[in-house]
């Protein structure tokens, strides 16, 4: 395949610039291979986070030619043959060094989500779930926490509304708990207020970049928005609940957990 030119952003939170490197590309190489080769040949101090090299740990997320990607899953032959390959750290989170970002915002937000709380066990001491019910939430559990969806979400990326909107990865975690057939915690008020479902304008970029092909928007965020509508905006649903009571199995009140300050 020959030599390719790479423009890799080097720097830290104070600033930095693009450095140009050339390296030999052979058949089957992915972008992370090229980065490692550059690191070995000409930039020993280049910081890059990686681990499994199999698209399962979610560590090597960066922007390749302006698009959020897992560098270990982006084949070199999938990129345009002409021009430099531009590699940057993800935009949504603060840069630590070169391609490595501080993603601790995510761990703060995760702690704020009320955890799974199952209903009482059945008479024989078991919890039963049917496969059909498990399948629906199983999709959300494929998430590898690469945070590419958080990177591409313009609410976080461009408008920096980290205190207002929790972001797609955490909406998906909320969906997996909220739709769990055994769970009895009522998170809908939190989803609207603290986690800011109204800030999402469902432009679907999160779904487009998800390397696990989770249908974040259609199966996670929109169903949560519809549940918020049921509770707070639909006058007929509100009246029905008032007259006939709430028939859902969500009985436990919301419990505030974790640090309230989210900005990382």
């Amino acid at each position: 395949m020959g030599k390719r030119s790479f423009k890799i952003w080097r720097g830290n939170a104070e600033g930095g610039e693009f450095h140009t490197y050339e390296t030999e590309i052979t058949e089957g190489m992915v972008v992370l291979d090229a980065i490692h080769q550059i690191q070995a040949e000409s930039a020993n101090d280049l910081a890059v986070r990686w681990n499994c090299k199999a698209g399962k740990c979610g560590s090597c997320g960066c922007e390749v030619n302006g698009k959020p990607k897992l560098s270990c899953m982006t084949r070199m032959n999938s990129l345009p043959e002409e021009g430099d390959v531009v590699i940057q750290p993800i935009k949504t989170f603060p840069v630590i060094k070169d391609l490595v970002c501080d993603v601790s915002y995510n761990y703060v937000r995760n702690k704020q989500i009320p955890p799974f709380a199952p209903r009482e066990r059945e008479a024989d001491g078991t919890h039963r779930m049917e496969q059909r019910d498990v399948d629906r939430i199983q999709e959300f559990r494929k998430c590898i926490e690469c945070f590419l969806c958080m990177d591409v979400c313009h609410v976080l990326r461009d408008h920096e509304k980290k205190d207002d909107f929790v972001g797609p990865r955490w909406m998906i975690r909320l969906a997996s708990l909220e739709m769990h057939p055994l769970d009895i915690v009522d998170r809908i008020p939190l989803i609207r207020e603290k986690f800011g479902s109204g800030w999402c304008n469902i432009t679907r970029c999160c779904t487009e970049v998800c390397p696990e092909h989770i249908n974040i928007t259609d199966n996670g965020i929109i169903p949560l928005k519809e549940r918020v509508v049921d509770r707070f905006y639909d006058p007929i649903a509100m009246l029905k609940r008032k007259l006939f009571g709430d028939k859902s199995n969500k009985r436990l009140p919301v419990v505030e957990v974790g640090d309230s300050s989210a900005s990382g």
Binding site: G66, K91, D158, H159, K161, W199, T203
Partner: peptide
């Protein structure tokens, strides 16, 4: 996606 849009501070979502 990953293209900067409306001016910062003006976005209110839904």
């Amino acid at each position: 996606c990953a293209v900067e849009g409306v001016r910062r501070g003006k976005y209110e979502g839904e």
